[in-house]
Design a protein around this nucleic acid. Sequence first.
DNA 1: CGGGATCCTGTAAGCGCTTGCATAATATTC
DNA 2: GAATATTATGCAAGCGCTTACAGGATCCCG
Lengths: 337, 337
Amino acid sequence: MLSIKEIAKLADVCPATVSRVLRHPHLVSEEKRDRVNSIVKQTGYVPNNLAVNLRNTKTYKIMAIIPEVIRAYNNVIIRSMQDIAIEHGYSVLLGDTQSLQSREKAFADMARTREVDGIVLFCSRFPFDIDHTVDLATQLPPMVHACESTDMLGIPKVNIDNVAAAREGTEYLASLGHKLIGVVAGHSLTPSTESRLAGYRQAIDSANINYNPNLISTGNYDLNMAEEATQYLMSLRPRPTAIFAFSDEMAIGCLSALHKLKIKIPEEVSVLGFDGISYGPFLNPALSTVAQPLQQIGQACMQLLLPQLNGEPMQDCNRVLPHELVIRQSTAPAPVY
Amino acid sequence: MLSIKEIAKLADVCPATVSRVLRHPHLVSEEKRDRVNSIVKQTGYVPNNLAVNLRNTKTYKIMAIIPEVIRAYNNVIIRSMQDIAIEHGYSVLLGDTQSLQSREKAFADMARTREVDGIVLFCSRFPFDIDHTVDLATQLPPMVHACESTDMLGIPKVNIDNVAAAREGTEYLASLGHKLIGVVAGHSLTPSTESRLAGYRQAIDSANINYNPNLISTGNYDLNMAEEATQYLMSLRPRPTAIFAFSDEMAIGCLSALHKLKIKIPEEVSVLGFDGISYGPFLNPALSTVAQPLQQIGQACMQLLLPQLNGEPMQDCNRVLPHELVIRQSTAPAPVY
DNA sequence: CGGGATCCTGTAAGCGCTTGCATAATATTC
DNA sequence: GAATATTATGCAAGCGCTTACAGGATCCCG
């Protein structure tokens, strides 16, 4: 592989001049500039960024650590983060952890090892092996904790109010006359799921509906699981008249199960999703959902990260963004028997 | 930020010893090993990988360059690539290009700048600014070209036989008695779309159906576009009795449009997708599709990349993997009037 | 025409790490 | 107990790059 030295030799200048041609061309005479540029072009020379970044202690890379990149939910978030990052000269690398802690750590460590300048974390666990007996909080790399954030060493957070969002979703269903509202929840251990369950409970209680834990089915964010959960809910007597799925993707599984059972949506059973993914309007029936402000989430992540990348200290803040109930065709008043 | 020198000083050894403790602990006496380890732990020292990688000219990172990470289609591919990579000590970074050439190049250049060891390219364009008058093919970084590969400087390729796949899909529809088969195609410029259109054409011709270009609608891989295209196709007289969507995601858009038009699937119109995404069975009706061997694609990419990462020269090969027609509920014999 | 400003270029240090080599200390062998 | 093998450690070079610094040309001005 070609190095700056060899280019320098070929162009009959010193390495410093080659570097200047590439980084600060105005400092170099036209003659040498042309000579160097033509050699660079001929040879296809590209500087070794490991060396450049080592020297400059800066990579202009941001790592986004995501449990399952593929979830439709991430789409707009990723896009908006990336657009802002690029505007500011950074690129975004995505790390798909498959919800495995080992991978979360591996990707997060790229910041401590200087391979990226900062990270945006969409997982709930703290991703570093740090001895908490020592005050190492100061050694945290630039980072933002999004969507699943708990209190964590003063790391800035981006969230929605999951409790309120789930409460409002549930209240909406209750206001349609539903008394038996099944829940298809996600990973039972994640903060967002916990909060949403709490919100559901609040709404149930204040609507004077009897809380029935049998109506709650936790699992993961998979379609399969949602389908099974729905079958189970539909086997109950009395049967729920509404299902609140804690993600739109799971809602698709609910719809699928209901179709197979020949249960009419929304006439017999209403389905409410969560997230606001772009598929929603295209489902049959179009999915009512508690929409997250996906674009704003991405933007907020960058707004909180960029100052840190510029050397400003971490601010312990929690940016809570507004959710929105989007009513389409999958929800309707509870059937009257 | 802590460097190896400071750790060395604190542990009262030389930097080389610290390095040895971290990389080849058996070379160091227990006494110093313990001393160094305890300092490392206390201080939370982590080696600067830019320096390590510069020194070792190796990063153990692979960049996967993907037009739109979010497409369900990528799910299994990414997962299988990543699993194999990790087995071999590599991690996979995902680059989402939003189909923008500038981003494809930016990510691909990370290999030439040594920030990653190799790349897997899921886009169709050549991602480097290389002067083709010079023989620079030899300077290509380790790479594999997947899913959208054309002949390109001897870069190993992973593909399915898109012509045959689309032909078989079309033949299947024709065998059900469909004579008017609409197509909702993807980006008109990508090799895969071109090949699939060619395969469609072959099947149409050999079934002695009159080829009608009006039935072909190209756009992108979006749901919206697919929905519009479907509306358009359904406005034609005589109306197509089948739609072949060149991705399952677009097929969702077709289903959605048909539902809105109250057209029965598959009684009045059959819908055939392409890809075999995991949503397929959960749609209403469950989607028939030409499935790609997604897991095998991911595996093949790694099988072709790993040898290159070990220094073996690029082999100009084209690994063509088998597709499979998966028949579910969205296709049926053409209606008889 | 001398002195200062301006422009250009090379020298060399250093970013943080790893490892070949040399040396020193210790163990092993006959 | 001398010769040899083994083990442990430090020294220093070098991975490829950037930039502060200094020195040599060139120019401008009175």
